[in-house]
Nucleic acid binder design. Structure first.
Lengths: 172, 172
DNA sequence: CGCAACACCTTATTTCGTATGGAAAATTTA
DNA sequence: TAAATTTTCCATACGAAATAAGGTGTTGCG
């Protein structure tokens, strides 16, 4: 296995470096399998790849150790658990001092309805993906939780009408 | 186990109904465990819940059968596989005929760089989450793939500067 | 009341993950 | 180029896990 160092510069100064894990064709296939079905057995993969179980096992172990594979999770069907109402909420802060950002971020991670929160460029500062039961629950969330957060300037909500694609798997 | 029927009406007409899976406290805990770590053994859960392995096993099996648990996946670290550059792309179509929507959606699911695509209300029709290597790769993706799609009116890209929260786990 | 469905248990069986030792291949070093 | 080292692979073996089978107590319902 080869690790590639990637360097990030800012005005000629090295900001940070990152170890990229260079996967060969077999690694990519293994990870491809596991991204779709983490329950696939080593034996099944070994047969598909025409190699021994141990070889597969050791490759997986290494990728876990190196942090390429972050973990294994069960995915639920939103509809079946009555959380079909998904909203993308764009948020602008009133100011962009580091203190404001840090405080907002610390608070937003605590909100269980917020599945994802990303700091982004553009018109808004943050994009949040929120899942609740219905519109009423969303209104409640907005009023009692989200807008209570400090330093929020404005928000813009986009309601999900349809899910076209929702994948956790990267192409390798 | 109890299944709850949820009905959706539109101008007084029943559009569709949905079977909601009503989980008890134990189901919720089991699913809570698996959402965080799908590799947790039935035995470990059984101990935490003070019940037998078989009981845990059967509950999980039922939730899989009923579609509450959609599947199990491995999650990768974007950075380690050199796909750190994430973009939220907002897309507006030139028209909103069913034909246009269907065609666009069929094409966009084919694009491996597009991890997620949601049809949304508001200023734009779709929100896409795209992961590539760097800005250059994103430009290439835009020019050779995305803007080649039919019926695209306008796009607006927000680049991810920071990942505050990125969870696949629902609160139950 | 009695029947059926359900959730649970214990025990038994099968399958899987994982550890070990060692061979082949590739890579590095002298 | 030859030797040394590291990496990758394999076969085997064993404990742990998932799964199957059979049985018991509880609940709901006609």
């Amino acid at each position: 296995m080869i690790k590639l160092d990637k360097y990030f510069y800012f005005y000629g100064n090295l900001i940070y470096s990152l170890k990229i894990y260079l996967m060969d064709a077999i690694d990519k296939k293994i990870v491809g399998f596991l991204q779709n079905d983490a329950r696939m057995t080593n034996k099944e993969m070994a047969i598909k790849l025409q190699m021994s179980v141990t070889a597969v096992y050791e490759r997986i172990r290494k990728m876990e150790r190196e942090g390429v594979i972050k973990g294994y999770v069960a995915l639920l069907d939103r509809k079946k658990i009555d959380q079909s109402f998904v909203v993308f909420c764009h948020i602008k802060l009133i100011q962009h001092t580091k203190d404001y950002l840090v405080r907002f971020e610390a608070e937003v991670v605590q909100l269980s309805e917020v599945l994802e929160c990303f700091h982004v460029s553009g018109d808004y500062d943050y994009i949040l993906k929120i899942a609740v039961k219905d519109m009423e629950a969303y209104r409640d969330f907005m009023v009692t939780k989200l807008t209570r957060l400090q330093h929020i300037g404005s928000t813009h909500s986009s309601f999900m009408i349809g899910e076209i694609k929702n994948s956790t798997a990267y192409e390798l």
